[in-house]
Each structure stands twice: as C-alpha cells, then as structure tokens.
C-alpha cells in the first residue's frame, strides 16, 4: 500500500465517502422497515429518517474519507473501508433495536409513557427510543469508526 499515487488517495477518498453515505441510507432503510409496523397512532415520517440519513451520511462520508486517505500513512484498502462502513450499519441497527426493546420494558413497568394517552404506548416508546438512539449515537459512532480506520492505517513499529 506504501507509495500510492495521489490519484489513488482521491479514489479511496471518493469510495469511502460513497460507502459512508450508503451505510447511513441503509441504516435508515432498515429502521424504516423495522419501525413500519408501528406507523399507526402517530405515523413515522420516512422523510424524517431520510433527513437523518442524509445528515449523518454526509458526516460519516467526510470522516471515513479523511480517515482512509489523509496524512502520510499508506491509504486504507477499499475492503477495510467497506468493512468499517458495514460496521456502521450493523452497530446503528443493533443499537436502535436495543433502545427499542429497553423502551418496551420501560413502558411495561410504567416508568415511561404513562401520560401519553395512546392505545399502544409500548410501540410508540419503541419508535421514539429507536429513532432517538440513531440520532444521538450517529455522531460518536461516526467518530469512533473513523478513528479506528485511521489508527489501522498507521505503520506499526
């Protein structure tokens, strides 16, 4: 990987950016599919998740592209970048699911959502928690993944 030309760095950066946006969109799509069955009391807006995917997708793209190509270290292999983007997808969906399940438990215990006045508080709670987790965890997750990618490029002593 050492001695790659500048054009290679550009190519890797573009591929990393595209994968970052794709990962965010796929995560949003997975969340829409997961949360679609509770589009009943207060339908979830696909546009909201689309906005979310675009916002975090751009950030993830910039971070991955920078982590994959900037600096004197050899550029990252495309497979490594793809793996990192795949991690972003899996971790986001898993965290959103965990948040949704814990919200169901919280609603069952009447720790949350007693005053919502909805016939399906657990479903609504699951939706709120899953989307909230995706929103809140997007930034730190993107930073962590980019940092991991950048560190793996550094030559080891």
């Amino acid at each position: 990987m050492r001695g790659r030309r500048g054009s290679d760095r550009w190519a890797i950066a573009v591929v990393a950016a595209a994968l970052g946006v794709a990962a965010a969109w796929l995560a949003a799509l997975a969340l829409v599919l997961l949360l679609a069955p509770i589009n009943l009391d207060q339908p979830i807006s696909v546009a909201d998740l689309g906005d979310w995917a675009w916002r975090w997708g751009r950030l993830l793209a910039v971070l991955l592209a920078a982590a994959a190509s900037l600096g004197p270290a050899p550029v990252a292999a495309p497979a490594l970048v793809a793996r990192q983007a795949g991690w972003a997808l899996v971790v986001l969906v898993a965290l959103a699911s965990v948040a949704g399940l814990l919200a169901v438990v919280a609603v069952r215990l009447h720790l949350w959502g007693r005053d919502w006045g909805l016939p399906s508080p657990s479903g609504y709670g699951a939706r709120l928690a899953a989307v909230g987790a995706a929103e809140v965890l997007g930034l730190p997750l993107a930073w962590l993944l980019a940092l991991g990618l950048w560190r793996r490029r550094q030559p080891r002593p």
């Binding site: 509770i38 969906v93 898993a94 699911s97 399940l101």
Partner: peptide, 14 residues
C-alpha cells in the same frame, strides 16, 4: 445474539 435484536423488535410490534 445481535441478529436476534431486529427480529425481536419486529416481534414486539407484530
């Protein structure tokens, strides 16, 4: 274990 998560979330709803 992680794969179970989205399946269980869907089962919570349906």
């Amino acid at each position: 274990v992680v794969l179970q998560l989205p399946f269980v979330l869907l089962e919570t709803m349906r």
